[in-house]
Design a protein around this nucleic acid. Sequence first.
DNA 1: GCAAGGTC
Length: 728
Amino acid sequence: MPTLIVSEKNKAAKRIAEALGPVTVINRSKYLKVYQVPSKNIYVVPLRGHILEYRNTDQFKSWINSNPREIITNPNSIDKIPNSYANPYIKALIDFAKKCDECVIATDADVEGCNIGLFDALPYVIKANRNIKVKQLWLSSLEKKEIVLKYRNLISPKWSWGETGEARAIIDAIIGFSSTREVTNTFRPILNEINNKFVSIGRVQTSLLYLIYLRDLEIEQFVPEQYWTITANLEHKSHIIKAVHTKNPFIKEKESKAKAIFQKIKNEKVALILNNTKESAIINPPTPLNTSKALVLLTRILRTSAKSVMNAMNSLYLNQIISYPRTDSDKYSPNFNHLPYLENFKPHMNYGSYTVKLFKENRLSPTTGKVYAGDHPPITPLVSLEQTSSKFENNLQKKVYDVLARHYLALFGKHATELRIKLRISIKDELFTSRLVSLTQSGFYEIAPFLKKTYQPIFEIEVKELPVKEILLDEKETQPPPHYTDTTLLKLMEREHLGTKSTRPTIIMILLDRKLTYNIAKNRFKITEWGKFLIQELIQVWLPFLKPDFTRFVENLLEDIKEKRKTKEDVIIIVKKIFLALFDKFRNEKNTITIKFDSVKDNLKTTMQQTSQKKFPQTTSKCPTCKNHPMKLITTSQKKRFLACSDRNCKTYLSVPKTGRITILKSTTCLKCGFNVFKILKRKVNKSNIYYICPKCWNDSFKEEGTIGFCSNCTDYQISKEQCVKRS
DNA sequence: GCAAGGTC
């Protein structure tokens, strides 16, 4: 009788099947492939991560007519049901379970993997075939050798690991659903004012918001302190060498001391070099990239959001340009053969000469990080693509690939060398130091210059004296800590155990979407007035839940389930009890919150309006009515869009197509009426459609009968190479 | 209408 193997994702299913023998692919639906190994009588059915999710039962569907408190107390408040795309997967599990007498769970070798295999998929398998034998395939990598070996040594299912994931899901659902509803109901008068539909509360997101609140508070309450520094600019050939007084910084109490020193030396023209040491330092190439490190690096270099970088990596992976982007490995398996990948880059326009040099110098082993998670290698470029390649779907993918490819090549590079010169200097008996760091050997920086620090030009100092160009006494102020960026938020979340490598970018985005945070200059995050009000109120009643300690507390309990020290049920009872107490505290004290609403409502409304004012794209052509002002392409929060004259008094509006991405072509205008031509891109699953309209002509066409005012229907002109030209 | 966790 055949064997059914269940994997977490398509990629793993394919690899497992291929390792066990020649494969026949069974296309079950457009996206679902089952891999058959006829020689071994095996069917490998992939899943797509979790196929079930917790939802409120019908009894608790209504937000108004059900009691949020009962979501915690009533064991039937939530239920695990198939998600939107689960059906083909479930059907495949049932069909193949009926044919097989053995089921091997081969989902990822971690807590969520065990939960997906043993608690999402297996119940369907067993329901379809009560006598099926259940085993688990515990893979520490997807290499053929490992798969073959472990398939011969199947283990009994790791139920406790699966239960750990189940407890995590139940705890998050119960806490999230009950508190989101209760807090939404409480804050409803405020939500109406600021056009929010609800306020979401969750173990991870609310804790993160609290940390952002704390940082902003620290910045707000920061009291700058005055201090003074004495610096000397010394001349050496064409360079300026900056030296700092050894007693820097002079705090407020030492102001007079600083000024006295400055008075004493300000006209001195010679600096004596007392000591001149130099040392060479080696800078090693970076270590391979796991997901967290890649996100931190890419958001820092590209100055873009974690979410968009993660999306770009995922698309590159789906298009087989990079390896799997969700990995904890920052160390390659000793068996990983880098040669074919490196070989790819030899002819590359930008990376080629560096790569050829790697081969010449026989530098073919990468640096190594700390974790070999097994299932996937560190993030690796699989193919060599030029920046002009049409395989990139957008500019960001291009940039992400460039950084990842260069970083990968840097792993094999030679170390860089720094020259560090330290000078001890005396200016009229006042001691100064100067540190000069220059790059003497660029090594791997050649391919990955984005990893470089700032360096001074290379020079050596052999003289005993240097002329003083100027001596400066500067009054300065201490600076507050910076606002968080995507990069620093990712680091913070990792440090505080908030979220996972895959969910962190989404959680950062959720806070933005829900108007709890917003971006100020340079991708920096600030809590909104609304977020601040919310957290300030919650601190009064829910501080234990806001602190990241709560997640660590839950984590420890989950670990107890995994290690069989506690049962899933016991842990859920413990967490429910603690959270119910917090919930009741909120209920008992919520009058102290609602009583404040009248006094803060108006202020919140206006500040939130200011914060959310978007910059809408503008036409270069003028409004057809007033002929004075450009028009704005407005998109409302309900996703309706239209053109409006930027002069509010003019009140001219033009319709635009409801769907498709609009680009205002600024290099051409409609030769018929002079208005901008709009390019509309409609994305479909397989191909995209592009068409053009002039909004003025398009709107005019509504008043006439017959024609639709697309540019393609224009009798006199047509769009050619994004220019409006006479029809030939 | 809600969480956080997988994956496309």
